[in-house]
Design a protein around this nucleic acid. Structure first.
Lengths: 381, 381
DNA sequence: TTTTTTTACGCAATCGATGCCGACAACGAT
DNA sequence: ATCGTTGTCGGCATCGATTGCGTAAAAAAA
């Protein structure tokens, strides 16, 4: 008896090849391997119908220079065998990946996950897919991520910078190499491009104004790294409100957290410093989503009652703000819409035939929700 | 005077082409277009060093059959010009996309965003990128997403099914077509593959047991669609605890929410039905992350005091559970680890040379945090 | 010196889709 | 009857990287 072997791996040691034959097509009925034959290509269609691949390609994309009869046949066949063009081959040919990269500090933050929802909604509609990367507020990781996305040949990039990103060289280089970049949330003036933000200035202004009008005058501000655009804008809104009501501004009432809330110890330290000032603040405004919950937690942990000892208000997109103890006065950003707008602008840049020199700055309105955490005790109930 | 035009688009109507010439290379010094020249290929290296592309390719991947001297030159050149292999071309050649698809109900849910963190951590390390899609608890969207990911040629899929997915045909077909699938969180018995879940049974058991031991006997359960694996498992844990303490089980005390918390009206309706029972429950267990906050909100909204009128406890991965009013007794799942394990298993499947027939079921432990929402009033303070 | 082996590298095909040319037939126009 | 048109379609190169096969030259063995 003679056994025939079909080897899927190099010939095992000790075996000798004495006979070899090539076959055109191998039909395997092994139940384990009736797979990976789903992917039908343009070539298969061409062979099956006795036409060239060019004809198939043209028929599929509805070229007018194909006999309607031939076209019908091809379309029918493609339909029947569920043909899908291989996007990888298309990408190679067209040197477009149909992918956009998104870099955010972290997904597990409602502001960003909502923004990503908006990004995906638009991107998927326009045939792009979205690759998400997280910087975890680290400059290094951000650079690594960008490098990775570039080597993946993304067609464009949406970014909200890490709290440790002071230097924009990596982004400038990116843009110069022809990959469009759009900022959202956290932006920088060092790069000329589209920028999409919430109205941070007004959000902070409204929140501070509300606190002042509620009777608080000594108001602390806890913010992310001070070179971040959001920090600057929100701080300006805060100062504007103070000025408007003739509340003296005191530098000591502002604390910056370089880790932007990623490291709770840092937040607690900041709160502790604030609350140990000779004239401790009667209210605290948190100027960053990630810091807000940390601030509330730290204040409570350090034994202060909210709002009796100190009122708290802050930016947050968490839906449970009104279920907190106490329910939290907050400014909500239109995260979903910001993601949508940024993506529209980015894809516009990607698909623009001519270099774009006019860039937009889109500012979307925030919304203030007043709740118990900022209502002075005497007014309560 | 004669003008020469270099056209980037078809000849405008009214123009006639009278002269045409091809050039080898066009150097454009237009400041707008000094871009897209960053992408250096293997061919460029070959041309520059006067060797063939094969040699370059082999040198770059460290083949031994290349002269060390040549290899050094190539490596140096590649380094200097920051050469990166084009992953799209590699994908085409190898028919692997180095991408895995992830389908979750929604990103803006801490359980899933933490799981995605775990997924990314592993995937990036192993050179895969992650494409995320959301079903929004809709079966239709889930099917569309899968279709999209398949046409994108992902190498494998991680999925936590939507609350409306009763039918597994789409996943069976997927697996049969050779794309490995790994379940996490929500699984199904209709598919033989790796499955990664939290210990839902034990989590619900512990939580229910805790409530019983705290003195509650009439305990309601609010859950996702009843065909979901997590619903079944958690319900079983709940029943086990009841049985263990001889608390009679009453079918009326269980409410299923088909939208799994996506539609708050549904949740409120369920709570309302529970609380209108002749013998209304004294405690409610929420058996799904997304439902937990909705349950608490609904209970409070309907005017009940927690825990005085009714105690509440539930699954949730939200970090603010202890800042809620009242702080919420909860079961936390090891979401990050679940994502990691699922991804490891998936990539193992993808890279396995032989068909895998032994599948694992990994069950990771949950953790119960007892807080105020489940502590009977008399014991408080 | 001749033969064999080894070293080092090039050629060309391949992955799937696309698009520029050019071929060829049928047709009407001159 | 010859020529230009129009309609259809195939050949071939291309995108970038990889790899089996072949081979010239150098080294080793005979």
């Amino acid at each position: 008896m003679t056994l025939f072997y079909i080897l899927l791996e190099p010939i095992p040691a000790g075996w000798t090849l004495i006979f070899e034959e090539k076959v055109e097509q191998l039909i395997i009925s092994n139940p384990f391997t009736q797979m990976k034959f789903g992917a039908i290509t343009i070539k298969d269609i061409a062979k099956a119908l006795g036409v060239s691949t060019s004809t198939v390609s043209r028929a599929l994309r509805g070229s007018h220079e194909i006999n309607p009869e031939t076209k019908r046949e091809i379309l029918e066949y493609a339909e029947r065998y569920n043909y899908r063009p291989n996007p990888i081959a298309q990408s190679l040919k067209a040197s477009k990946s149909m992918a956009i990269g998104v870099i955010v500090p972290e997904i597990a933050n409602h502001f960003f996950s909502q923004a990503i929802n908006g990004i995906e909604a638009i991107a998927y509609n326009l045939g792009y897919h979205v690759i998400i990367a997280q910087s975890h507020e680290s400059y290094e990781r951000e650079v690594i991520n960008i490098d990775h996305l570039v080597s993946r040949r993304v067609d464009g990039l949406l970014i909200s910078m890490s709290a440790q990103t002071e230097n924009m060289k990596h982004l400038v280089a990116l843009q110069e190499s022809g990959i469009p970049v759009v900022f959202f949330d956290r932006t920088s003036e060092e790069l000329e491009t589209h920028k999409v933000t919430a109205n941070n200035y007004n959000g902070a202004y409204q929140m501070t104004k509300h606190l002042i009008e509620s009777g608080f005058r000594r108001i602390g501000l806890i913010a992310s790294a001070n070179f971040l655009s959001i920090t600057k804008e929100r701080q300006d809104g805060y100062k504007k409100a103070l000025a408007e009501y003739n509340v003296p501004f005191d530098e000591d009432y502002i604390k910056y957290c370089e880790w932007g809330g990623m490291v709770q110890a840092e937040t607690e330290q900041a709160i502790s410093e604030l609350m140990n000032l000779p004239e401790k603040p009667r209210a605290i405004v948190s100027a960053s989503d990630r810091l807000t919950m940390g601030t509330l937690a730290a204040v409570l942990k350090q034994g202060f009652k909210v709002p009796e000892d100190v009122a708290v208000a802050g930016f947050t997109n968490l839906k449970v703000a009104d279920l907190l103890n106490p329910s939290l006065t907050s400014v909500v950003q239109p995260a979903f819409e910001m993601g949508q707008v940024a993506t529209e602008l980015l894809i516009q840049l990607i698909e623009s035939k001519r270099p774009v020199t006019q860039f937009e700055r889109r500012i979307l309105e925030t919304k203030l929700y007043v709740r118990d955490s900022s209502v002075p005790q005497k007014h309560k109930e």
